[in-house]
Amino acid sequence: MIVLPELDVRQLASPMGRASPLTKLAVGLAWLAGLVATTDPRPTVVLLVAGVAAATGLGRVPVGRFARAWLPFVVAAGGVVLVNTVFGAANADAAARVILEGGPLRVTEPALATGLVLGLRILAIAGVGVAFAQTTEATALADALVQQARLPDRFAYGALAAYQAVPRLSLDLVTLREARRTRGLGRGWSAGLLLALLVLALRHAERLALAMDARGFDAGIPRSRFRPVRRRREDALIAALGAAALAVAILAAR
């Protein structure tokens, strides 16, 4: 059963927690562009370290909590290292130093080097992802999208209502699987099970939409703001530090 994550007060009161989600998103995308622009290990490591520091320092994400969210990416990073090394374009280079050879397999040093950097890139991206997710509440994201990015209210808050339905959908799934077992059908999965889950999701959406309209969601008048989003000092701070980290990364490149 899925429980929506509850960020603790320290995370929300941290500079990362107080900054607008859009600021964090912009910095994250700028870093992503920086990471993609190079296969040099040094800028990659700079942004990897910066991401971890942003989460645990500026975001006050407890180290254990950060690690739990981040460590699963070691597997994904390992996969990326593997494919880029084994299937590396550089392996075709006759001049490259071979470190492993057998049958059709020929692994060269430059391919491994590229693979390792790309693995680090995954860990850096994951670090940024955890820093973002562990300091951002869904409501704050919806508010910022509406008030700062001028996205239409109905879509942002419709999405927020759907996000709220996630625990219920996961409970539906658990119950449907139990129901399968009590009908003598075993513990497995079936297409019917997943379809039943989607049916419940759609029916829930139908009821939710009705309840939202009953409260004037589609009244057609401009909505007012219970939680006004303002630009804060923290936004400037995160943007400045984000730009600085990116600058250091660029300078660190050869």
Partner: peptide, 9 residues
Amino acid sequence: LVVSQWGPD
């Protein structure tokens, strides 16, 4: 948001 994965990417 639910599982803290990948973030901006």
